[in-house]
């Protein structure tokens, strides 16, 4: 285990001022299949504070989606605790809205507008009129006003994802859970959505837990990055990235952080390869 390195750039009083909104402690998540048990994450801990843009970063299959499902309340940890505002998470709830990685998360029997309004109405969060206004506002933010009466099967994958984002944001939840929401978008649209998301964050200062496997996206979108090891996911590091946005992308510090994370994720692979080579040589 490496010693925890102190990070500068954050004044002390800032960190002490809050208690964590979401606190994940030593969480191990497992899937039970018919034949065996798959450990998705192993003893992962992190704290998310109010207005954090907290990013879970790691290679494919390291358990990022599983962690998000845990926080959303779909999956109970076999070990450890997850608490939101001090209360243990035991079930899904609209105070943690999730944008899923999969494209079939919209309800196909509802139009775009109805899809965005649906959670606001069923959770009793607002009345029909207000829900409609809010839905229209967020549909406009993701640039889908023209398609508000279309059914999901008429939308492209990226458009569906944008509807899901609008749907989750319109709820203004305590914490927004986003599972690789921009992965399906082209570079230009992705960049626009990232900027839009950051702008929205500037406006409303919501808290989000954001999953990605793109180092660059993690640095741009995140204020703090949790780097996870390959499967089963364990915490490798927690880094600050609040000082970076699109504007800093050319800067050497940005490049340095990218490289640092890259090495972290990569080191494991090199080690593994060396080990397997050694194993093959012995065998």
């Amino acid at each position: 285990m490496t010693a925890i390195q102190p990070v500068d750039g954050l004044s002390k009083s800032d960190a002490v001022a809050h208690s964590p909104l979401l606190s994940v402690k030593d969480v191990t998540l497992q899937y039970k299949t018919r034949e065996h048990i798959v450990t998705a994450t192993y003893r992962v801990s992190f704290d998310v504070f109010q207005a954090d843009r907290f990013v879970l970063l790691g290679p494919s299959g390291c358990g990022k989606s599983s962690l998000l499902k845990g926080v959303a309340g779909f999956m109970a940890p076999v070990e450890g605790t997850m608490k939101l505002n001090g209360r243990t998470i035991d079930r899904p709830s609209p105070d943690r809205m999730m944008v899923f990685q999969e494209f079939d998360q919209l309800l196909p029997w509802k139009t775009v507008l109805q899809n965005v309004m649906f959670p606001m109405l069923t959770s009793g969060r607002c009345k029909r009129k207000e829900a409609r206004e809010r839905a229209l506002r967020f549909i406009d933010k993701v640039n889908l006003t023209k398609f508000r009466d279309a059914y999901p099967h008429m939308l492209s994958g990226g458009m569906k994802q944008r509807v899901a984002i609008a749907r989750a944001m319109a709820m203004e939840p305590d914490i927004l859970l986003m599972d690789e929401p921009f992965a399906a978008l082209d570079a230009l649209t992705r960049r626009k959505m990232q900027e839009e998301l950051l702008q929205l964050w500037e406006d409303t200062r919501f808290t989000m837990l954001f999953v990605t496997h793109s180092i660059e996206e993690a640095i741009i979108v995140g204020s703090r990055i949790l780097v996870l090891s390959p499967h089963p996911g364990r915490v490798k590091a927690e880094l600050n990235a609040h000082q970076f946005s699109h504007a800093e992308q050319g800067r050497p510090e940005f490049g340095a952080l990218t490289q640092r994370i890259h090495n972290m994720l990569f080191a494991e692979r090199i080690e593994e390869e060396a080990l397997s080579k050694a194993g093959a040589a012995h065998g």
């Binding site: 499902k69 959303a72 309340g73 779909f74 079930r91 899904p92 709830s93 609209p94 943690r96 809205m97 999730m98 899923f100 999969e102 079939d104 998360q105 919209l106 309800l107 649906f118 959670p119 069923t122 959770s123």
Partner: peptide
């Protein structure tokens, strides 16, 4: 019914 749609539904507190 797909797992994602189930989870989406439960996410709304249904």
């Amino acid at each position: 019914v797909s797992e994602t749609q189930r989870m989406a539904g439960m996410n709304y507190g249904l």
